[in-house]
Design a binder for these strands. Structure first.
Lengths: 227, 227, 227, 227
DNA sequence: CATGAATGAGAATTCATTCAT
DNA sequence: AATGAATGAATTCTCATTCAT
């Protein structure tokens, strides 16, 4: 009955079972796929506005222009919508991050491209930004392995850049890399959070270059740095 | 009948009314205050384990060793417990932050003291850490003015340090200070989040010095920095 | 999801919002309307037996043979059931009163028809009678504008009859009409109340003619009247 | 523990046991009696404002200036307060009705005195009026024998007057007396209800004479009456 | 596949009543 | 007697999920 062979997850409630890797795209029977995205996007919009918990299936259904029951044809349950958001929507974005990193050679350029793209993608889709920033942390805390993986995925990209930079001689190696990664991810996240919380108004991407400069140069003046 | 030291807020659901100024101390008849903290701590524990939304009043009551109804003597409603967590518990911590900053003179030392204390307080009370990190962001997103104020309070402390450092000549002034503040707050938050998410195991305070060094020196090697 | 033919009112608790104009008929998809009446009638029965306040939604649901939640598809809340009773069920009866009055010409006949019909309708549906007599007064006291309107509607019918009777020369005009209306409404109400309170046993309609005679002739003997 | 030997009633919930006839006055241990009335009057005020069901013991206690628990020293439970209102407060008023009737000789004068006093007592104590008019009907419907008795007490007074009037030749005897009594009580009640519902503004006692005239003369013109 | 009415478990909250002080 | 904090049963209402059409 239920086409989403996809996964058993309702990760928010920790009632996850096996997470099947078969992607929605594996079964792109034309119009069905439309409805899948239609619902997913509607959900993200509603989740962004209301928060995942306050949002109701009925609201999502109304926003998507389908019946309540229809949602359960494409998604196992409410939590599965959020899971699909992370596993499908977000993953797609993260793939682009990787692509962006590969476009250039130097570590600093790679980081710059990554951050630019990161800010760019979130700026392009503020609903995604809101839901990701708000619910991903929630999910990390509630102990969802999959979400942790996504964070790790991002951290791994950074890690590779750092290692490369250290080889290149452009990045210091007197810090433990775990800390450096958090340091970078934290800065980006906070910049995004601020942008969202203050109403998605200004140009987020413009923050990329100064932020990367901060990462590299720090806030200290050379005089003191040298000491 | 209802002590309601408390206030009208149920900020999570935006159903806040006026926030009354009556302080807790208004009715500290002996053991009452005990029960207030008893419930508050129980709630923080349950919120930490389950998340605010999944946690039920009954769970909090059981954890606190009181009847469900008793909670409503000390708190206006579920959201008010969280509000009290922020306005009472958290604020106390933030006051200590300020005190720590005032102990030393140089900007870098101030920042170092702040971060150390920040990590120290959260390490001392992991439940507080979990709830604060997870729900404060939530609240910022859901647009709670009070929580935003708390964040701002922290950012203001940082801001003062930066301004002083710039006067001292120890901190660069070629970055917009708004960005620098996010950059610093983001790093700390991410370090705390990681610590919590990975199970509150290692020594969090030990991250303070390397983190502050990162803030000041950046990740770039001088050779390139100088260019 | 929620049909809410209905309206925003929960007048008993004065938490009324706007009363929307959307009529029942807006969504009469086949059996739905059945369930609306099914619940409404069950509610009236339970309200008649227990009183509005003591009656619970669960009792109404059980009586109606539906789940508790179903009630909230058709009614906004408990008070809305009572409101619908007044605005739908009762109003229908009152419309018949008007029709009955129009059937005849003379004022006295009009009043007689009105009272007969009034007693007749209540006799036909004792549950309605109980709930109306008991809760309408309650509602008048609690200051519900809508219920006051219904009472006024009835008083207006009487008023028209009196005015006509005065023109005809069949009704005295040396009393203030406000008092006369209360005098008439009071008599009918008390007769109905007595009938209900004593167990809905005897023929209520049979009281109509003697009552109307009382209204017209009074209890005084002519000898003294003439003085 | 509980001084109110008074009664076991909680008539609203039909959980009445035996109703002891021992009056409060039987045990007038000075200040205690004060508190009994203090609470009773506070309750009537609160019941008048909120309605019996919506009113809470806490509100009554606050209004009376005593602790919640104190109420249970003087009254068995919430319903018992209402019961005491009827059995003590109201009965006292009804005794005065009787006294007033005995002051004069003729039936019409007796009825006039009764109605005047009735309206007068209610006008003097609007809270009593509100609670009596609203809750007595409720109680009659919910089948409280005691309240029915009170109504009967009043009807019996009227009955005696009618019988006397018929003997005197001042009152017709071609109506069944049961109906006449309702007819009279209904008019008074409706006049009082209207007065209360419209805000206790005008002079209620002034309605007595016109009302009694209506009772005696009816609304019909003699010309038609004679037919 | 799609629908949306129906379900009922579950949660927050209230408040009459008790009882230790 | 008086108190008022504590209790917990009871109630309203919500909403994710199901299933007959």
């Amino acid at each position: 009955m239920n086409i989403h062979s996809v996964n058993e997850c309702s990760f928010i409630f920790l009632s996850c079972s096996a997470r099947c890797v078969i992607k929605k795209q594996d079964k792109p029977n034309k119009s069905n796929n439309d409805k899948y995205h239609q619902i997913l996007n509607a959900a993200i919009k509603v989740f962004a506005e209301q928060g995942y918990h306050k949002a109701t299936i009925s609201q999502v259904a109304r926003e998507a222009g389908v019946a309540d029951g229809t949602i359960y044809i494409y998604f196992k349950n409410k939590a599965d919508i959020l899971f699909n958001f992370f596993s499908y929507k977000t993953r797609r974005v993260f793939d682009r991050f990787k692509g962006e990193v590969e476009k250039v050679d130097h570590a600093e350029d790679k980081l710059r491209n990554l951050i630019r793209r990161h800010l760019g993608e979130f700026q392009r889709d503020p609903n995604m930004a809101v839901v990701f920033q708000r619910e991903a942390l929630q999910a990390r805390y509630i102990d969802d392995a999959y979400i942790k993986d996504i964070t790790k995925m991002y951290l791994d990209i950074i890690d590779d850049i750092i290692v490369q930079g250290q080889k290149e001689g452009s990045i210091r190696n007197d810090f433990q890399s775990g800390l450096v990664k958090r340091f970078i991810l934290g800065g980006v996240n906070e910049v995004i959070n601020t942008w969202v919380v203050t109403g998605v108004k200004y140009d987020l991407v413009a923050m990329a270059d100064p932020l990367v400069d901060l990462y590299f140069k720090g806030i200290g003046l050379k005089s003191r740095n040298i000491q």
